[in-house]
């Protein structure tokens, strides 16, 4: 058993008080390694809450620098961080909240050539990217490596999340199969998004990561949670593993990773 310092006991006291977490759960969090892909609207609240919760090792991937238009929702970045690499800005805030952590930064795009090598050291992946080739690549790599992950998407006033535990629950491809044609896709940068929606969805993703690590409750596995914040209407749709899924079905046709047509590496 880990020896908690006085400071740790105080810092994590509201976790330790929870019957479902306690000292054991907090130890699991301190030993856990979570990778956040995307230091944007979703990655911002995820990184802040995972750091505050004491997730011992947090990796964060993003190749962008902070832009003025990000600050409406990406609450981990401050005005002073404009033009700073997002991963460095996020690291600074995470360590400012909790100096106990190890934060690993990856200022790069994830692509077929590097993703498995990066994710394999982590217990859980939080996917907060805005493009479908990356979402499918993360799904496929996590299925191949057997690493659970949380999918998140937001647009306008809506959000959706699902958690995938490879080998046990349906994957993103079971339901969504292939990236939609690039010209059909509205992104936040084209369609807009209410800033607080990123907080709503990001905290759901952070909660899923914490639940998985502690081993408490029911994950959003085989479930697509979606909400319409205009009406504050939440809905869960039951999903199931599909035998004909090209990556986790009975006869997988995807046996190696390839970058999709919107080459994520070359942007």
């Amino acid at each position: 058993m880990m020896d908690f310092t006085e400071e740790q006991l105080e810092r994590y006291s509201r976790h330790i008080l929870l019957e479902e977490v306690g000292v054991e759960g907090q130890e699991k969090l301190l030993s856990a390694k979570v990778l956040i892909v995307g230091a944007g609207g979703l990655g911002a609240p995820v990184s802040l809450y995972l750091a505050a919760a004491g997730v011992g090792t947090i990796g964060i991937v993003d190749n962008d620098v902070v832009d003025l238009s990000n600050l409406q929702r990406q609450v981990v970045h401050f005005h002073k961080d404009i033009n700073v690499a997002k991963v460095e800005s996020a690291k600074e805030k995470m360590l400012a909240i909790n100096p106990d952590l190890v934060v690993k930064t990856y200022k790069k795009y994830l692509c077929a050539d590097n993703i498995r090598e990066i994710i394999k050291d982590y217990d859980f992946v939080v996917e907060g990217t805005d493009n479908f080739p990356a979402k499918f690549l993360i799904n496929d790599a996590c299925v191949m490596e057997g690493i659970p992950f949380s999918h998140g998407g937001i647009l306008r006033f809506d959000g959706q999340a699902m958690t995938v535990v490879p080998g046990e629950s349906s994957c993103y491809r079971c339901t969504f199969r292939n990236p939609p044609p690039p010209d059909a896709v509205p992104t936040c940068s084209q369609a807009g998004v209410l800033g607080a929606i990123a907080g709503m969805l990001g905290t759901i993703q952070a909660t899923e990561a914490l639940k998985y690590i502690i081993g408490v409750g029911d994950l959003l596995t085989d479930t697509l949670l979606s909400f319409d914040a205009k009406k504050m209407h939440f809905r869960k749709v039951k999903l199931q593993r599909q035998d004909d899924c090209p990556i986790c079905g009975k006869n997988p046709t995807i046996t190696e990773l390839v970058d999709a047509e919107q080459a994520v590496c070359s942007i």
Partner: peptide, 14 residues
């Protein structure tokens, strides 16, 4: 019948 919408969001170009 369920219409399940593709939803992106989050960070750009990761």
């Amino acid at each position: 019948v369920e219409f399940l919408y593709f939803m992106g969001g989050g960070a750009g170009k990761c």
